[in-house]
Structure formats: C-alpha cells, structure tokens
C-alpha cells in the first residue's frame, strides 16, 4: 500500500456569495515531498483553492485533505496551522508585527512554544532565508525581497509539512527572484506554488497543474505542458521564453 498523498482534492467546488463559481470540481493529489505548480490566467481559481486548502474559506467535508486533516472539520482546522504554511501574495498582509523577530515568532508562540524556543526557531528561520540579524528591523522598512523572505521565515518557523506559496515571485527584482528560486528549491516538505511566472515554475517544480475557469485542464511535466503553444494559448498563457527559444532555435 502506498503512502497517503500530502494534499488530496476530490471534486473541490467553491462558489462565492455573489453566485460566481471559483472552483468547479477540481480533483488532484500531490505526494509528500512533491513540488507542484498551479498555473492559470487571472480568475482561474488559484487563490481560492489555496484559501480552501488552508481553511480560511469554509467548504464541504471530504473535498480537501491536507496532511491528513480536513479543513472543513472544526477539530482538524485547529491543527492546520502546524501542518500547513501559507505565504500570501502580498507580504505586507503577512508581516503584521512591530518587529521582524516578533513576526517570525508569531506562529511558534501561537503553537504554545516557550519564548526561548520560539526565539530560537525564529532566529533559525531568519538565517535559513538569508536574513540573519534582521530581527530588530521594522517590517515596513524592508525591501520587497526582504519582506518576501521574512514572510517565508514566519511560515517556516512553524515547521509545516505542506507549504503553499501564492505568487511568490511577484514584486521581486531579478536578483530577488533568483535568490527566491534557490530558497524554494531548498524548502522541505510538499510545496504547492500558485503563479503566473512560468519560468519560475521551470526552475522550481517537477509538476504543473493548469487551472482555467475553476477546472483542471492539464496536469503533467511543466516542460511538456508549457511547450504546447496551442494549450497555452487556449488557456490565456504563453510559452515561456526559455522553451520558445528552444523551439525556434
């Protein structure tokens, strides 16, 4: 018998209060340790899917299982923060404390760790994302790349087994983006990345799921999927320059 998947979505459906359907029967699974990219045009349902997986949006039981927990079950939902980490699109939404160290330690303290253990975890996470010595800085004085790293540190400090990254390369300059690729490749556990940045996917993920209008329209190796110009065009995407150069070269 094989291991249970880290993330399993079974006919996941979600409609907003205004009647708009964001997800219409999404089904896929990600194995433990797998790196999966979720790509698609604006409004495809990527962020809604993330919000369902981390339990921010309510839903029906049985549609989502993540790290063995069902976010629709109130008892499971309480245990989700220690199993699932989410890095939101805009790091300013995630860095709400008055100092970087307090922010990174926010999650561990909520998990009930002592101040000493939380501080040790926070310092370790800051060092891991390349921000040692940033603990006393105030979040609004950090650069875009530093904010992104601090937000990731805040999630890593909780040691989740599943990590959800929503548009991680947004707002980053080329150097920040390059550094982030190195960082994401070194992350432990299962990683799900929602992004428009297909070059970023080629550098970090072994599998891509294309979403369009709330449905899975393709699932497979990113190089194969992204090289299919007709598929990309049909779903509001473009062949990444790197693959286009190989085709024309």
């Amino acid at each position: 018998m094989g291991h249970a998947p880290a993330i399993r979505l079974a006919n996941l459906t979600h409609a907003y209060a205004d009647g708009r359907t964001a997800l219409a029967g999404v089904t896929f699974a990600a194995a433990a340790g797998e790196r999966v990219a979720l790509v698609g045009p604006n409004g495809a349902g990527k962020t809604t899917l993330f919000l369902r997986v981390c339990g921010v949006l309510a839903g029906k039981r049985g549609e989502v299982t993540v790290a063995g927990l069902d976010p629709a079950d109130p008892a499971h939902r309480k245990r989700l923060p220690e199993a699932v980490g989410v890095v939101f699109q805009n790091p300013d939404d995630q860095l709400f404390s008055a100092s970087v160290l307090d922010d990174v330690a926010f999650g561990p303290l909520n998990l009930g760790l002592s101040r000493e253990d939380a501080a040790a975890r926070a310092s370790e996470s800051l060092a891991r994302v390349g921000l040692p010595g940033f603990g006393d800085r105030v979040p609004h004085n950090l650069s875009g790349g530093e904010k992104r790293r601090a937000a990731i540190a805040g999630v890593l400090a909780m040691r989740p087994t599943v990590l959800l990254l929503d548009e991680p390369s947004m707002y980053l300059d080329p150097r920040g983006r390059r550094d982030l690729i190195g960082l994401v490749n070194g992350l432990p556990g299962t990683v799900l990345v929602a992004t428009h940045d297909l070059e970023f996917v080629l550098d970090t993920c072994s599998r891509a799921v294309i979403l369009d209008a709330g449905r899975v329209v393709a699932d497979g190796d990113p190089r194969t999927l992204f090289a299919d110009a007709a598929l990309m065009d049909r779903h509001g995407l473009e062949v990444p320059p790197r693959l286009a150069a190989i085709r024309t070269g």
Partner: peptide
C-alpha cells in the same frame, strides 16, 4: 491580514518575545 493571522494559529492572545 486576518486570514494570514488565522493561518498562523492566532487565537486572539497577544504574545511577544
């Protein structure tokens, strides 16, 4: 911000290092 706080286990208690 509220969603991000809940995702990191916030239960209304103020903690500081």
């Amino acid at each position: 911000v509220a969603a991000a706080m809940r995702c990191r286990g916030f239960d209304g208690t103020f903690h500081t290092l």
